[in-house]
């Protein structure tokens, strides 16, 4: 009898996580509070059980996440015995870089990309796990599991290594680092099935509830706190919505839904006829923006 696909994916991910822990000096796991991060952290706990996970979680905080995400983050780290590190870009905070006054591109670059690089430098991490999957976007289909970054954290597309079998080449020079994607072979459906099977807790924003919403440029945006700047004529109204992906609340589009439980969310997802990233406002800015962001070090 062979393993089920979820068992096989889980085993593969654990193999990758252990290999990095064994070969790198100072790894870290990027934690974005979303469901993929939740699965990744769960896999890390499994990889080192009965021991503790031998590296910390890092949340790169733009300070504009949903309030429910912050609550969830604290509880998640505490209950699962993780060491949590949080970093925000101090210059960005000083200049009050926010998603209203700045274009989403500039905002993301300063508050996410730069902040991440600062954090990696500050703590000297040489390997950073991320929860990205190859099925997320056409251009990610060719991504390696180990993605190499030079001393300046730049990703050089011509300088990536072929990956054969499960033999990962973890040799790096001083100052170089890798990003590791243990869930490369998972799909969105696999992730949800796994969350369901394993009972992994997720932020309640994934489930439908009545929430204060304004409709802006065709997106349903939640008014999550008093910092939200309403445009003239906008008044929040309560609508039953949920989120397919979670990020900074002013940049995350909700969808109208009645799915209040995990099975219902999965059912809706299976019947959905549009892809996941449609809800991500930041992608609309530019085509092929993923590629560019990656080169700059966002992933």
């Amino acid at each position: 009898m062979s393993l089920s696909h979820l068992q096989a994916l889980e085993a593969e991910s654990i193999h990758i996580i252990r290999e990095v822990a064994a070969e790198f000096r100072n790894p870290v796991m990027l934690y974005s509070i979303g469901k993929d991060s939740g699965v990744l952290a769960h896999l890390a706990r499994k990889a080192f059980f009965p021991g503790r996970v031998p590296f910390p979680l890092l949340h790169v905080d733009t300070t504009w996440k949903f309030r429910a995400m912050y609550e969830f983050r604290e509880r998640f780290a505490r209950e699962n015995g993780f060491e949590l590190r949080v970093h925000s870009n101090p210059e960005g905070l000083a200049k009050n870089v926010n998603p209203f006054d700045y274009g989403s591109n500039v905002y993301t670059t300063i508050m996410k990309t730069h902040a991440l690089l600062q954090a990696l430098e500050k703590w000297g991490f040489d390997a950073a796990f991320g929860g990205a999957r190859r099925d997320e976007e056409k251009s990610r289909a060719k991504e390696r599991v180990y993605s190499f970054r030079d001393r300046n954290h730049q990703w050089d597309p011509k300088n990536q290594r072929p990956e054969l079998w499960n033999l990962y080449n973890g040799r790096v020079h001083k100052g170089e680092s890798i990003r590791v994607f243990p869930m490369s072979n998972w799909t969105e459906l696999d992730t949800w099935l796994y969350v369901h099977r394993e009972g992994i807790p997720v932020v309640p924003l994934y489930f439908a509830a009545m929430r204060p919403i304004v409709e802006r440029d065709g997106n349903l945006i939640m008014v999550d706190d008093e910092r939200f700047r309403l445009r003239p004529g906008e008044t929040p109204s309560l609508r039953k919505v949920r989120f397919r992906t979670l990020g900074c609340y002013p940049l995350s589009g909700a969808i109208e839904s009645d799915a209040e439980t995990l099975p219902e969310v999965i059912r809706e997802m299976l019947l959905a006829r549009v892809s996941e990233r449609q809800g991500r406002v930041i992608d609309y800015d530019e085509d092929a923006s993923m590629e560019r962001k990656k080169r700059e070090g966002y992933f």
């Binding site: 089920s4 696909h5 979820l6 099935l193 369901h196 099977r197 999965i266 059912r267 019947l271």
Partner: peptide, 18 residues
């Protein structure tokens, strides 16, 4: 799926081979 038993569906899909 719209009307069917979602739990049974999940159960089936969690046991697929790769």
């Amino acid at each position: 799926l719209v009307s069917g038993d979602i739990e049974a569906y999940l159960e089936r899909h969690e046991k697929k081979e790769l």
